[in-house]
């Protein structure tokens, strides 16, 4: 079950990461890695800890134990906005587009951390420079903006006729599926070394799901490294090089999709654990219901 020993250092490495909420472990000692060019999926039923893990990887939340490394460097202590500069781009489970901004502006914001004025690090001078650039808009800024815009339109064109006619419409006016597409376009605009997708097909109908699947497959074919968090097992079958299965906060297995698909542990994780009353009854120190005091309420006579 343990993945093969890798010669190269993984791009993202999760080492014995845990996250406890009030003593309850939402993520419990999870370890795995993603190599450059790989597509890895993390799957599991509702409440398995996928979203918590995703938040830990993307810096929205911090682990209570363990470490996460990106390209060999620990992520601990970095502010949330520093992740983009490292080359990590994410989507959100419920499609967090900038509602009142146009489709084009949404996608352009994906390139925020790539812009020249944002990349330079001098503290106060840099603030003034950004202000001056905004005000005066010198040639270099205009060129950069034009280049980014061309790139954004190119990315949007990859979705065919879905988004190109709507470049200047506010994102809130889009259909749900289109919002998800805008989110992915925005993430691609970062030119991410690692693309993190959080349930990219949640709430989509089968046709839209298939379309999204094809799109992600194209990205993968281009060599994009992808971490996919998914609920639907069948969806990740075609896409993933490796699948990590979580349940109850723990990694229960990891392996090739076909193997995972037929793993009885995985199926049980999804459909729920079978009832094992004898095992539990042994620890049971008190009866669930006191037999002597059965309810004698007559529901038909009950109301009012």
């Amino acid at each position: 079950m343990e993945s093969v020993q890798r010669a190269t250092r993984p791009l993202l490495e999760i080492k014995q990461v845990s996250r406890a909420f009030d003593g309850v472990l939402a993520v419990d000692d999870v370890s795995f890695g993603i190599d450059e060019g790989e597509t890895v999926s993390v799957i599991g039923p509702n409440g398995a800890g996928k979203t918590t893990l995703f938040n830990l990887i993307t810096g929205v939340d911090q682990p209570t134990a363990g470490e996460i490394f990106f390209d060999g460097a620990p992520l601990a202590g970095l502010p949330a906005h520093a992740y983009a500069r490292l080359g990590m781009a994410r989507t959100f489970q419920h499609g967090r587009v900038f509602g009142n901004l146009s489709v084009l502006d949404n996608v352009l914001l994906g390139a925020h951390s790539r812009r020249q004025v944002v990349r330079s690090r001098a503290p106060v001078v840099n603030l003034l420079r950004e202000l001056a650039y905004g005000l005066l808009q010198p040639g270099s800024v205009k060129q950069e903006e034009a280049a980014l815009r061309a790139e954004a339109e190119e990315i949007l064109a990859q979705f065919g006729e879905r988004l190109t006619p709507r470049l200047h419409q506010p994102a809130y006016s889009l259909s749900y599926a289109n919002r998800r597409r805008v989110e992915i376009a925005r993430a691609l605009m970062l030119r991410p070394r690692l693309l993190l997708l959080d349930e990219p097909t949640a709430g989509m109908n089968p046709a839209e799901t298939q379309e999204m699947l094809d799109f992600i497959a194209t990205l993968k074919a281009r060599g994009q490294t992808i971490l996919l968090i998914e609920h639907k097992l069948t969806l990740v079958m075609q896409l993933s090089d490796r699948v990590v299965v979580m349940d109850d906060g723990r990694k229960i297995t990891e392996g090739a999709p076909e193997v995972v698909r037929h793993d009885p542990q995985v199926i049980e994780a999804y459909l729920g654990h079978r009832h094992h009353p004898p095992a539990n009854a042994a620890q049971d120190d008190e009866p669930v219901v006191q037999p002597a005091t059965r309810l004698t309420i007559d529901p038909a006579a009950g109301v009012l």
Partner: peptide, 20 residues
């Protein structure tokens, strides 16, 4: 199960199919 046998009608939403 017990309150049901005492006459209560129950409609439950569950993720855990095997248990429900």
């Amino acid at each position: 199960q017990q309150i049901n046998t005492q006459g209560y009608t129950i409609f439950m939403v569950e993720q855990n199919a095997n248990l429900a």
